[in-house]
Design a protein around this nucleic acid. Structure first.
Lengths: 206, 206
DNA sequence: AAATTGAGCGAACACTTGTACTCTGAACTG
DNA sequence: CAGTTCAGAGTACAAGTGTTCGCTCAATTT
């Protein structure tokens, strides 16, 4: 029952995924990914590809899922940073930026396919990002006592700003990344202040 | 000196650009654009393409420029709306969203190539967006008396939020677009309030 | 021990791709 | 009017693409 056969299959499956990842770069996106090249890098014949995935699309969706997993790791890591105390905003933004630097290929994939050419891809990415936003909403409601409505507005704005800055960070050198990080932190502080002011304005109206 | 020849050349050049535009859709991006198909739709032989562009890349950059032109139209239109009085934020966001709806193909191109696979493309798009941000900064400094630093933070945040919402609007139906518009307006109000609060905080500190 | 399964291979097929070359004929120039 | 220019067409080629088919042979099951 060792499943030496199933284990081997899983291994080359991982090799295929890894090969696809390796070929994703700033210059070559998912769209220009070729079955034959992926198979070559994974060390199998082109035809054997079909033992693992029906299409390139199926491989692609697997990559997006992989990216979602990574995003969830990021969430966990952020929560740990927050638990340690200190500035929540600063901690979150810096962990996010570090993550972008360490997982460039996968972030690029997510960002590209978010406005890419396959509806399934777009939906898959949107789902992952929404998961991210939802976590933030929960935090704002539970810890900071915002109304759900205001929390949703705020969280959505934050995610838009942070992901957009993350996209810019993909191309940036170290110095530029630092600038982006500080800028994003300052912007989130503005948003936080604005949300706070909005909450007060709503309260005094009652 | 009529230039009946030059006119014809310009005409088929426009036909090529138009053909390329037509082939850009939610399903078919720039990356999967083929010289032969573009030439076919423009009604010329594949080889004649080279009389007008050296590469597909050159055609692509032309499309991006075209998009930049469109963005500048948007700016002008927004300013007219603002001059009419009323809510600046509401006017700007609604004109932006209308523009996205009416120029879907070109916006999709800009959004995709902003994080696309050609460095030249990314730079070209970034340049256009920066132009957009710069205009907003000028407005905030001149009309609202913000410091340049705060205006830049605010403008950049606004552009990130609006363009990100615009990207979502590409796929959305009418109802969803309205929701997005209202949401974006509310978010920009939060940012405005936050910036205002930040300005006050800085002042009292002096 | 015999039978079955299935990952991986190699050959082959029917395309599509970009691009180099040569030629034509209408528009322009002197 | 003769000569030149040049947009566009046609042919051809080499290189790549995804996918089907039948085969092998080790792992697994009966």
């Amino acid at each position: 029952m060792a499943g030496i056969r199933a284990a081997q299959k899983e291994k080359t499956r991982r090799a295929l995924i890894q090969a696809a990842m390796n070929q994703l770069s700033a210059e070559h996106g998912y769209a220009s990914l070729s079955l034959r090249e992926v198979a070559r890098e994974a060390g199998i014949a082109p035809t054997s590809f079909y033992r693992h995935f029906q299409n390139m699309e199926e491989l692609g969706l697997t990559l997006v899922d992989e990216g979602g997993l990574t995003l969830r790791q990021l969430l966990r890591q952020s929560r740990q940073q927050i638990a340690k105390g200190g500035s929540i905003i600063r901690a979150s933004v810096t962990t996010f930026m570090e993550f972008v630097s360490n997982n460039t290929a996968i972030f690029r994939l997510l960002l590209q396919e978010k406005s890419g050419n396959s509806r399934d891809f777009r939906l898959a990415v949107t789902r992952e990002v929404e998961h991210f936003t939802a976590e933030l909403v929960d935090y704002l409601v539970a810890e900071q006592k915002f109304t759900r409505e205001l929390a949703e507005l705020q969280a959505d704005a934050i995610v838009r700003i942070v992901f957009s800055a993350g996209a810019d960070a993909l191309d940036a050198d170290h110095k530029e990344k630092q600038r982006l990080t500080e800028q994003t932190i300052a912007q989130l502080r503005i948003v936080a202040r604005g949300a706070e002011a909005t909450r007060l304005a709503a309260k005094t109206k009652e």
